[in-house]
Structures are given as C-alpha cells and as structure tokens.
Simulated assay, not measured.
Amino acid sequence: MALTRTTATFAPPVMEARRWLDGVNFTDEMPLLNVSQAAPVDPPPLPLRQFLAETALNVPDAHLYGPVLGLPELRSEVATQWTASYGGDIGPQNVTITSGCNQAFAAAITAICTEGDEVIIPTPWYFNHKMWLDMLGVKSMPLVTDNEMLPDPERARALITDKTRAIALVTPNNPSGVEYPPALVRALYQVAQDAGIKLIIDETYRDFDSRDGAPHDLFTAPDWGQTLIQLYSFSKAYRLTGHRVGALVGAESLLAEAEKFLDTVAVCPNHLGQHAALWGMQNLGDWVAGERLEILDRRAAISEYFPQIAATGWKLKGVGAYFAYVQHPFDMGSDKLAQKLVKDIHVLALPGTMFTPENDPDGRQDMRIAFANVARPDIKLLFDRISTVSAQ
C-alpha cells in the first residue's frame, strides 16, 4: 500500500482494543469490566432528552446548515460562563463551536501549522492528538513528564526550535488523570509566549476537576489570544458524545483560519447537539455538579482500593478526572499484558504503549484505567481481579 496521510499513523487504539474481545466468552460469574474508554455510556438526563425531542419536532432550523463557527447563542453562553469562571475578557468572537473536541484540536493545529512543523506534547500523550499530527505531517516532539506525571517547563523550552508552533497540553490529563497546578500552566504559557508560539490547553475534563475555582488564570492576561488556545468538550458533562459538540477558544484571527478548515470538513457543527449543549449550560448546573461528585467518589475509590494490588507490585502513578494511570510489575510489555487481562480476568484496559513513542520503556510498563463507567463496587471488583494476575 502506498504511503498516505493515514498510513503515516497508527490504528485507532480503542477500536484495536475492542478487537481483543473477539472469541472471549464472558460469563455471568465473570462479566467484562470495560475500563478502556472515557466516554459516558449512559444517555443524557431525561430533561435534556425531552428538550432534544422537542427541538427536533419544533425547530425547523435545527435540521439545516448553520453558521460554520456555531450557533451565536451558544458561542455567547460559552463566552459569558468562561469569563465568570476564568476571569479576563472572553467574547463570543473568541469562541468557535466544533464537531467534538478532537475536531477543535484538528482545527487549531491546521490553522497554525504546515507540513514539517513541530508541536511539543507531553508523554504519555493523548493518542488522537498524536494521530492528527502524524496525518498532517507535523512532527510530535515528546516532552517526558516527571515522577508526578507533570511536564517540566524548562524541558519544554529546550525542545523549541524554529519549526515549533505550539505546546499542547491536556489537563486534567488524559491518560494520567493528573491535574496540572496553576503555577505550572502559567510557567508553560510563559515559555510559549517567550518563544512566540501557541499554548494549546485541552480542558475536556474541566467539569470533573477536584479543585474549586479556575484551574488557571491565563485568560486574565491582557493579550491572552496571542498565545493561548483552549479546547473543550460538551460530551462528558452532558453525555452528548454521539452529538459531537466541542469548542475552540482563541483569538479572532485564529478562528478566521479555523473557519476554512471547519467549513471544508463539516460545514457546521451538529445543530441539535448545539441546542442541547446550550440548554445544558443554562439548566443543568446542579446535575453536572452531582456528576462531578460521583466521579470524585470513584477517584477516591481508586486510591482506597489500590493498596490491594500495590502489595503485589503495582504502582499508582496518577489519578483524576476519568483516569488512573498505573505501572504493572511484570516482565512483559503492557500491550501483551492488556490482552492477557482480557482472556484471564475479563478486564479491558489500554496499555501504555498506546500513549507513548515506540519502544518507550515507561509505555511498556504502564496502563490506563478509565473509570467513568465503573462505580465504586466495580472498582473494588476490578482490583480483586487484578490481584489474581500472575506473569504466567
């Protein structure tokens, strides 16, 4: 097969992992525990589904093309709520609605990069970010994180060349779950500003941050649009995964370039999903707060029950948002171990090899556990099963 944009990268990891289920017979005594994907599997809350149905029936425009940059009302609501949450000056002209947060990243990268450019991404990385960079011909520059899974600003500075266009972060992080401290985010912003490049912050999981208040103060900078690009997803907060609604926040000049990309690949974001996101923002604040508390309880359960497998050599490297990132004690690659867990204990998790450069020693030893869809009792069951695993 000839080399193409798509052959330049790897197969979608979640889809690859699902193929490991083929031929495995799950039982009532040991059903599958799927901790591979971070997307909610439950539908939106009933009031939101009712609103969606009424909108589909009664709003003719919801079935037509809309503005490429999104519904003006939703852009305005994001600007208003973000200004209240982060401070600073964010207007509707700074907000673009996208077909999911992955598209927001793709639009941002396409607007600021060309083939041969470089983007710095901390490892372990979010694999869809790496895939898009590969397909665009942009070189990913791995920024190794420390023992607390945090990127070092000075290491980032040392990676910058005349081809560097951005540093791309995810916080709370996917895959590690770690929440980047405000001072660290500010320091990385300063590195980007000094170099005249962008700092991209994917805040898909901001609604499940354990901290109160703004996770950073970057929007208070008077010229934030010259450096900062923020990405967001409505999928996790309102369970709108199938409706594909995300957001890109940045300078007007950036959005003008992103609009070219968005018009070409999708024309406009899903109209029904945008109406749902707007209604959710205006009506589901208390419900989202309850969802956050449930996720924080699951995070606490990870920490409470982990000593059961720590006793057999496992290590908890990071936990937060929807994820726990763990190190296994066996002399085998995590890709092989992940397939063994499916067969032996009916657990589907993603190996660290899917989040790191090829032959990275940390990737070989690490695994990601996504606990968005496993409540406290299943987390206990998960560690019960893992405690029985051997290297044989």
Rank of each mutant, 00 (worst) to 15 (best):
L64D: 14
I167P: 01
P47E: 05
L169W: 04
Q190M: 12
K236W: 14
V265A: 08
R298V: 05
P44Q: 09
G352I: 07
A106P: 06
A214R: 06
P172W: 00
A156W: 00
V267P: 04
N174T: 14
V342H: 01
Q230D: 07
F26M: 08
I109L: 10
A104Y: 06
Q339T: 10
T4N: 06
A324K: 04
Y232D: 15
L48P: 02
Q327V: 13
P44C: 05
A187Q: 11
L188A: 04
I112F: 00
P47I: 03
F127G: 01
A104M: 10
P222Q: 08
V95D: 01
P67C: 09
A17S: 13
P329Q: 06
D362N: 13
R299A: 12
T220F: 09
I201H: 05
A8D: 13
T4E: 01
A266V: 11
I345G: 04
K236R: 13
H275P: 02
D134H: 11
W20C: 01
L316V: 02
Q308M: 12
R368D: 12
R165N: 08
G177E: 03
F10H: 14
L57A: 15
A156D: 03
A168P: 00
E259G: 03
Y322C: 14
K380P: 00
M281R: 11
G66W: 05
F261W: 14
V14Y: 10
S390L: 11
P60V: 09
N373R: 09
I345E: 05
G290P: 09
S233H: 05
M354K: 08
V170G: 01
W132K: 09
V14S: 11
A53C: 06
K343T: 01
D134I: 04
L199G: 02
L199Q: 04
L348Y: 00
T114M: 10
I379P: 00
G137Q: 07
L188H: 00
T80F: 09
K317T: 08
M367T: 02
G91K: 14
P215W: 06
D42S: 13
V249M: 12
L348Q: 04
A11L: 13
Q193N: 11
V78F: 15
F234R: 00
P153D: 06
L278G: 02
Q190T: 14
I97P: 04
F355L: 08
R18W: 01
G313A: 08
Q93T: 11
G225T: 10
I201E: 05
V347T: 05
G285L: 05
L240W: 08
E358V: 11
W314D: 00
A258R: 04
K198L: 03
L133C: 13
L316Y: 03
H271W: 09
N102H: 11
A183E: 15
D134G: 07
R239M: 12
S140R: 10
M332W: 04
S303M: 13
D117E: 09
V347S: 00
L57S: 15
N174F: 14
Y238T: 02
Q282V: 02
T110N: 14
V78P: 00
P222V: 08
A104Q: 06
A156S: 12
P31N: 08
T96Y: 10
G196T: 06
L188N: 00
D366R: 08
